[in-house]
Nucleic acid binder design. Structure first.
Length: 271
DNA sequence: CCCAAGACCTGGCGGC
DNA sequence: TGCCGCCAGGTCTTGG
């Protein structure tokens, strides 16, 4: 599922059901995720109050006294609120039971996700310590991409998908933001002007903001529903449209591979 | 330091 | 139908 908008939508969706609630128990049916779930995590969480539900990059963080539960949804993960009446199905790997009788359920067929324990400050944790700024935060201002990209030969698409540069830009929205900015995905990052990179920054913020707003329309589905945020409800101009016509100039959209990821662009609009 | 490729894992799809 | 290869929203790790 998840690019940043989906993760943010998930955090917002579960927050009202989770913040301030006490964890009664945690049931793990599959410890083997991208990294093993710590065997003592259920014991550690029992009886603790969830003080806050936070997001950093594509991680969801449940704050309790002394640390955080760090959850990543990988490629196929989801998190939703359910109840004990709802029997766990295949790939429902983790249930966190709340005293309110709600359950936070983690589902992940491909098991690229993770559920880990972070003791102490978040910024010291290895998975979080090298992350770049949030794309919707103040640090990601207009000339940030320009400053960071000087001398870099990597394709601009690979560059903006690098979490040490800026977090939260996945394959779908990288394609969409580059289309909106009129920049070809394979252009060397260091070859782009300050002005063009300012436009790209703006389009990254815009596409993510719009997608989060779209996700917001399905928040009610976090209880009882399938837990999947509204993903494709917004219009995608290039992603998944290789071979079709450009929505702007009607030229045939081209599909190439960059760093193993499919990249779709309009050869006429994007240079 | 920079960059490209490999690795992890399951399910769905198109083609034969 | 059934099997096979390929592809998929991520990102850490490895090796040049």
């Amino acid at each position: 599922m998840p690019e940043l908008p989906e993760v943010e939508t998930t955090a917002r969706g579960i927050r009202p059901w989770v913040e301030g609630e006490c964890i009664s128990k945690m049931v793990v049916r599959q410890y083997s995720l991208r990294w093993p779930i710590p065997v003592d995590l259920p014991y550690r969480l029992e009886g603790q109050i969830v003080k806050a539900v936070k997001r950093r990059a594509k991680y969801i963080l449940l704050e309790i006294t002394g640390g955080h539960v760090l959850i990543h949804l990988g490629m196929s993960g989801s998190l939703r609120i359910t109840t004990p009446k709802d029997d766990p199905k295949k790939h429902d790997h983790v249930d966190i039971f709340l005293e309110s009788s709600k359950i936070i359920r983690f589902h992940d067929p491909r098991r690229f996700g993770c559920v880990l324990w972070v003791e102490g400050p978040l910024e010291d944790f290895p998975l979080l310590s090298h992350l770049g700024p949030e794309p919707l935060g103040k640090e990601f201002e207009d000339d940030y991409l320009f400053r960071l990209s000087r001398g870099r030969k990597t394709p601009i698409k690979t560059f903006i998908m690098d979490a040490s540069v800026v977090v939260g830009v996945g394959n779908i929205y990288a394609n969409e933001a580059l289309f909106a900015a009129g920049i070809a995905p394979k252009r060397q990052a260091g070859s782009l002007s300050k002005r063009r990179l300012q436009i790209l920054s703006k389009e990254i913020r815009l596409v993510l903001t719009r997608a989060i707003e779209q996700g917001g329309t399905t928040l009610r589905d976090f209880v009882g529903g399938d837990g999947k945020p509204g993903y494709f409800s917004q219009k995608l101009h290039v992603y998944g449209r290789g071979g079709q016509n450009c929505s702007h100039c009607a030229h045939r959209l081209k599909e190439i591979r960059l760093g193993q990821r499919s990249s779709v662009f309009c050869p006429r609009c994007q240079t």
